[in-house]
Simulated assay, not measured.
Amino acid sequence: MKVLVIGGTGNISRGIVAALQHRNHEVVLFNRGQHRDPPPSDVRIIHGDRQQRDDFEAKVGAEEWDAVIDMISFNAEDAASALRACQGRVGHFVHCSTVMTYGPPFSGINLPETAPLQGESGYGLGKVAADNLLLESHARDGFPVTIFKPSYTHGPGMNLLRQVGGDGSWIDRLRKGKPILSAGDGLNYFQFLSSRDAGFAFTDILGRSNCFGEIYNIVHPQARTWDEWHRAAAEALGVDIEIVHVSQETLIAMAPERFSGLRGNFGHTQIFSHEKLAAALPEFSPQVPVTESVAENIAWMDKHNLIPDSDADDLEDQVIEAVRNLPRIR
């Protein structure tokens, strides 16, 4: 198949490109050519900025595509432009949405694709608008769209994240034997999927007409706690870990500029059902061990000097010391 990936150099995208090449598809990318990591040398690049609508639509619309995977559509305007470029010229169009369309606030756990769309962030609302426009085009005109909703997908191309946010200096803290913070009791659940595994789901759905007009959560079927995730990072580094638990609201009260983001994402248990995708794509089963995928992610951060010196910012140490020195009832 001749497959266009709009984007193609980010975290999930590089897993998709690798999987497409593994399946012997012809891969073409559309992007600005500005990513720090060049794509594989045997991949054709169409350079452009999708925000330059006329240029984007002319370049993408100049060819016929067996499939298009859109990784950088964030609102209805982006989706409408993709429709104008691809309508009548694509066999299958896959749009990357997000589980942030469901919340927070989330309506429950193990959420299926029919769950209420309660996301309040600009990111989530923009994806809802893009999803709706594409689904309306399918219902009205038969546009062959499938929508994937990833949760946290990790790998080379972005920093390895932890629950309380911040930059990559938490990896330096682990290497130096410093304790790290965790919000609450560390038992909030999340689903952590390797971008290598995600790439095969995006690839292997292509051409399946029974998936047109459908939405699929693309998540790891095994939920992990944040403490388990942090321990996986320590295992990948070959170090011990000390986790200091502090309530989310206490963290936000002590340093709102650092920790307020917890309310908008990682401070919530997030589990989404994978059953619909498993039924449509029974061969999809994540294979990459978590310590291996985490180690790959950290190696990429090291390569690009994205792990700052944790000694340069002592806020975490101050929070940990303050909590440890709180008076206790004996």
Rank of each mutant, 00 (worst) to 15 (best):
A232Y: 00
R324E: 08
L315N: 01
R84C: 09
G261Y: 01
L83K: 07
E283G: 15
S260M: 11
C211L: 14
A67G: 14
V145W: 04
H274A: 15
D185P: 05
Y123R: 11
K2N: 12
R44G: 04
A58S: 13
I215T: 13
S97Q: 05
A278Y: 03
F212P: 06
I218V: 15
Q248G: 13
H92K: 11
G165Y: 01
L251F: 07
I147G: 05
G126F: 10
N188V: 05
S260H: 07
E249D: 15
P40F: 04
F30M: 03
K149C: 15
G207F: 01
Q21S: 04
D78I: 04
L20E: 01
L193F: 03
D42E: 15
V90R: 05
S151I: 02
I205K: 00
P308T: 12
I12K: 03
G91H: 08
N305K: 11
W170A: 11
N75H: 12
K303S: 14
Q51V: 06
T291D: 03
T146M: 12
D49E: 07
F56M: 14
A129E: 14
E26L: 13
G157P: 07
G155T: 09
T146W: 05
S285I: 04
I298Y: 11
D185M: 06
I205E: 00
